[in-house]
Amino acid sequence: MTNQTRKHKNPKDVSVGNYIFLIIVCIISVFPLFWMFVASTNKSVDVVSGTLIPGTYIAENYKKLIAGTNLWTAMWNSFKYSVTLTFFCLVVCSLAGYGFEVYHNKAKDRLFSVILLAMMVPFAATMIPLYQMCSEMGLLNTTAGFILPTISTPFMIMLFRQNSRSFPHDIIEASRIDGLGELQIFLSMYIPTQKSTFAAAMTITFMNAWNSYLWPKVIMLKNDSITMPMLIAGLKSGYVTDYGVLMLAVLFCTLPTVLIFFVLQKQFAQGITGSVK
């Protein structure tokens, strides 16, 4: 009813110009990705001549790609690092966010604002000491070295803290009366109600981990510990650039995050905006 009246009130709410503008923006948004896909299926010569039709050369490009690089090692590394990081990040940050909100008192609130300060610290400022630490502890080229600096991030703690606000305190009190321990309340009452927060945190952490470039570039010095972004960045600086092969590698690097985005896009948008409400 209200919907109808509103529609009736502004029938010319959206102009044709709006649609044209949106369509142009969408074309610009999608074109580079479409072009990447087309290029990955064509011969380098055809890519250079400017074709926009998907070709049939993808198998050849793939053969060249696996002959010239350790594609699947890099895929597996990226996957291994990202999944491990996501797991530890969710455990540590959800506990902390919950702890800051549910058990909040003056001292914890003050500690939280100190932790938020870490958000301001640019990675470049901590990179060199972190590298020295990792190299002293023998963590270069390891999963532990990859994940340690970003398991606990102020952003993720804030996300869980803000979203814990919607978790009713009555449930906690009721569970305590029912004889549940503090940790049991967290595990069996809190986690099931926060599925979308966890989904959002998972998406964001996994994407950031998969896409990270500077830190792995610093600590992954062996050829068999490199990640996908490092692999494709290495490909582009070869002597002769085969555009078809290069774009196929870029496609491999992009697909996992795009797939996750399509599956979890609702939670993703909710998550990044839910944290700032």
């Binding site: 949106l22 969408c26 580079p32 990705l33 996908m228 290069l246 995050t257 795009v258 985005f261």
Partner: peptide, 17 residues
């Protein structure tokens, strides 16, 4: 979705594109 799509690509990927 289409306007948000670029955010799903990694920084290195889109840089190379």
């Amino acid at each position: 979705t289409l306007i948000f799509l670029p955010c799903a690509t990694s920084l290195v990927s889109y840089s190379i594109i």
